[in-house]
Design a protein around this nucleic acid. Structure first.
Lengths: 173, 173
DNA sequence: AGTTTGAGTTGCGAAATGCAACGGAGGCTC
DNA sequence: GAGCCTCCGTTGCATTTCGCAACTCAAACT
């Protein structure tokens, strides 16, 4: 497909996962489809009516999401006309990114109150804002952050932290 | 499925800030430009060479980001050929969304180690994974979450007002 | 058999994107 | 102040993607 993606991959010396993420999710409808999926939409016609997206584009986006392992496509047993699209683990883990975007839009947009809202199942209170945190969980603001090259990282004791699927284990290497 | 219907109607009614965010950041190069800006790129030529983006597209994207208040454009005093593009507060607050995306790409991509890496200025340790948290700062997984309408929320103590405040410090259990 | 439903595909015009060349104001050098 | 260089774009044109409407096609339903 696009030559763009090849270029993106080796930009800036060739090391950033952002282009990779954007290759999967950077297209116009991808996040909207994802959002619908998170809200329980599973079928082609549902996506189409819900999002008012052109059918050919929807078809294309869905298969691309499937190709990227973000959604799984399954022909339903009880009615073989129907196809079920479901988020994979990989897709589900896009939730923080999506919510971060949504919260940003909510804060800076024209006071749009998003509905439905994501709540903690335990107490049914809305979730907090998505933030950046230090390795120990402290919330960090932009001014307390630095960009460092991987090479210059100094290992500091044991830095393994919470979150079993964590990406955080970058200290070594 | 009655519930689903309600949710769908709300979506269609447009009560979601995600489309709003995507209008500003949903285009192909927007996040890449943002990333470069976060890494200290400020000038047209720098963006162009850094990203290998077509000049007309870059021009268009930059002015759109300016229109959306994500970047500020300023002609430099000491050399009036130069134009400085800088992130606004609104732009800076896209950082969690961008990092969430990047971490996702890092985790699910082909083991791409992103550089440079964002570290806590205090101890120079890499930041933790971007996660969803409860109103009290507990990290919540997808299975502990529910979608609720704003109307059905039960008030509890201090009402959550999204936005500026960092939530209470996390006692990492 | 005939109709409806679900999930796409096809054709075609409109818009966005990409490439290369050009423009023009500001600064530098002599 | 003439000529050259730098920075920030714009213009023209080819390619790619998007969007709409109509069409297909198999599986169910009546």
């Amino acid at each position: 497909m696009g030559k763009l993606r090849e270029l993106l991959n080796d930009m800036d010396g060739g090391n950033c996962a952002l282009p990779l993420a954007l290759e999967a999710m950077g297209e116009r409808w991808s996040f909207m489809i994802l959002r619908a999926a998170f809200n329980g939409v599973h079928h082609f016609e549902e996506f189409q009516q819900e999002l008012n997206i052109a059918r050919n584009i929807l078809s294309n986006r869905l298969s691309r999401l499937v190709d990227h392992g973000i959604m799984a496509r399954e022909v339903m047993a009880e009615d073989r006309r129907k196809v079920q699209y479901q988020l994979t683990e990989k897709g589900i883990e896009l939730l923080p990114a999506m919510i971060a975007l949504r919260q940003w839009g909510e804060k800076w947009g024209a006071g749009v109150p998003s509905t439905p809202v994501l709540v903690d199942a335990r107490d049914e209170q809305p979730i907090g804002p998505v933030t950046l945190t230090a390795h120990d969980g402290r919330v960090i603001g932009y001014k307390e952050l630095l960009w460092k090259h991987r090479a210059e990282l100094q290992p500091l004791g044991q830095a393994r932290v919470r979150g079993e699927g964590a990406i955080a284990s970058v200290a070594a290497e």
